[in-house]
Design a protein around this nucleic acid. Structure first.
Lengths: 237, 237
DNA sequence: TTCTAATTTGTACGAATGTACAAAACTTTC
DNA sequence: GAAAGTTTTGTACATTCGTACAAATTAGAA
C-alpha cells in the first residue's frame, strides 16, 4: 500500500501533520481559550497522536508561541503596506478613514494572508489578552507595539489638533471594539433582532470604520496646546 | 440559618468565610479567567479549606453563578436609575452624553454599589465572555439584554435619524472598548509613554464617553429613510 | 449544661492534565 | 536492497483537578 501518491486524497489531506496540529490548535484556542483546551483535544482535532504535539512543539506553550510566530510577520507586513498607501491620501478626512481601514482590514481578513486567515488569529489574540496569558503578553508587547505606534502617529498627523494621548485612548477603544466583535458577533445579531449579522465581516468592518473615524474626530478633552488661551471651547459640532 | 436576628451582624461578627470565598473567587476569576483558577487557589486566597467551597457553593460553576447573582441586580438597578435621570435631560446632545455616562459609570464604579465594586465584576464579565464560559453566557443573555435594549432605545430616541441597527453596532463597540480598557489598562499607559494612566477610572470614563458620543453621532452607513430612490434592493429581510 | 444543627476540616478518589520515552512506521540516502 | 534519519504511535508517570464524605469543630436553643 501507499505507493507513491498518484491521487490520494487522504495522503494529500495531511501531507503535513505539523500544519494540521497548528491549525487545529489555533481554532480551538481562539474559541475556547488556552486553558480550556487540552493537548489531547488538539491532537484529536488534528487527527494526530498526543505525542506528535510534544514532538513538534515540545510544550503547549511552545505550540502557542509557534502560532504567533506564524502570523505576526505577515499580518504586520500587510498592515504596513496598507498604512503606507493610506498615508499618501491627500484629503485629511479621507486619509484618516484610509488609515483606520488599514488597521482594521487585516484583522478581519479570512484566508488571504496565511493559512487560516487573520480573523481567527485576531480572535485568538483577543481571548489570550483576556485570559492574561503570559506567553501572549510577552510577544504582543514586543511585536505589535511598533505597529500600534505607527498607526497612532499616522492618525495624529491627520488630526494634529488632538493630543497624542487622546489618540492612544481612542485607538485602544478601537482595538477593544474590534476584539469584542470577533469574540461575540452573535450578540450583535441578537440585540438587533436579526437586523444585522454580527458575523458578517464586511458589514462589521464598515460599521467599525465609520464609528471609529467619528470617535477619533471628537473634540479633545484636554486643552490641545499648552499655551493656547482660547477660553470657551464650546462643542463646535 | 433562619435564626431570628438576635445578633444581626452575623456577617460582621466573624470573618464570614462564605463572603471571603466569594470575594477571592471574584478577584481570581477576573484576573486569570475561570479555567486557570482552581478551587484550591480560591480556598487558599480566602484562607479557607477546599471543602468549604464545595459546602457553600456545591460546584465551581455554582460559585461563579453566585457571583453573578450577587452583582447583576444592584448593577442593573443603578443603571436604570441613572438612565431614567438621563432621559429627563432636555437638550438632545446633553441627553445622549448623559445616557452614555449612565451606561459606563456603574461598570467602572469601584466599591460603592456592592462589596467588591463594579469594575472588578465588569472585568470578570469581559474575561468570561472571551473564554466563552457557558454559565456566564446563559446569565448574561438573560439578565443584561433587557438593560442593553433599554439603553439602545434611549439612544435611538435622542438620535432618531440613525437606524436602530447601527446604534446596536455602536453600543456593541462601546461595550467592547469598555471591556478592553478594564482588561488591559496597562496597554494605554505603555502606548502613551506615561502620558496617561490606563487604570485611572475617572479619566478612562471621560475618554470613553467622549469617544462613544461622537461615534454614536456619526452619519449612518445605510440610508436612514426608505424615501431615497430605489436602486437595487439590498438584501433586506 | 446538653442537645442539635450548621459549619469547617481533613482526606481520599477517579478523572484529566502535560509531558517523557521507547518502539514502530515511514522517508531519504547510499 | 540496507542504513540512517525523521516522524508517528502507544503507553506510562507524576501532578493537579473537581468533588464527595466522614470526622471535628462551632454556634444557638433547650
Amino acid at each position: 500500500m501507499a505507493s507513491k501518491s498518484t491521487s490520494n486524497d487522504l495522503a494529500a489531506r495531511k501531507p503535513n501533520l505539523r500544519e494540521a496540529i497548528l491549525c487545529a490548535a489555533e481554532e480551538l484556542f481562539a474559541t475556547n481559550g488556552f486553558n480550556a483546551v487540552s493537548v489531547r483535544d488538539i491532537a484529536q482535532a488534528a487527527g494526530a497522536n498526543p505525542g506528535s504535539v510534544t514532538y513538534h512543539f515540545k510544550t503547549k506553550d511552545g505550540l502557542l508561541l509557534e502560532i504567533y510566530n506564524r502570523h505576526c510577520g505577515p499580518m504586520n507586513r500587510r498592515r504596513s503596506e496598507l498604512l503606507a498607501a493610506a498615508r499618501r491620501v491627500r484629503d485629511l478626512q479621507d486619509r484618516l478613514e484610509a488609515i483606520v481601514r488599514a488597521y482594521v482590514l487585516p484583522a478581519f481578513s479570512s484566508g488571504s494572508d496565511l493559512a487560516g486567515g487573520g480573523a481567527r488569529f485576531t480572535r485568538l489574540r483577543a481571548v489570550m489578552s483576556a485570559e492574561g496569558n503570559e506567553v501572549a503578553r510577552r510577544i504582543i508587547a514586543q511585536t505589535f507595539d511598533d505597529t500600534s505606534h505607527a498607526f497612532i502617529d499616522a492618525i495624529h498627523e491627520s488630526l494634529p489638533h488632538i493630543p497624542r494621548t487622546e489618540i492612544v485612548w481612542r485607538s485602544h477603544f478601537l482595538l477593544g471594539a474590534l476584539y469584542y466583535t470577533l469574540v461575540t458577533p452573535e450578540r450583535v445579531s441578537r440585540l438587533s433582532r436579526g437586523g444585522a449579522d454580527g458575523a458578517d465581516a464586511g458589514n462589521a468592518i464598515e460599521q467599525l470604520v465609520r464609528a471609529s473615524v467619528a470617535s477619533f474626530q471628537a473634540p479633545p478633552l484636554d486643552p490641545p496646546a499648552p499655551s493656547r488661551r482660547r477660553s470657551m471651547a464650546q462643542s463646535k459640532t
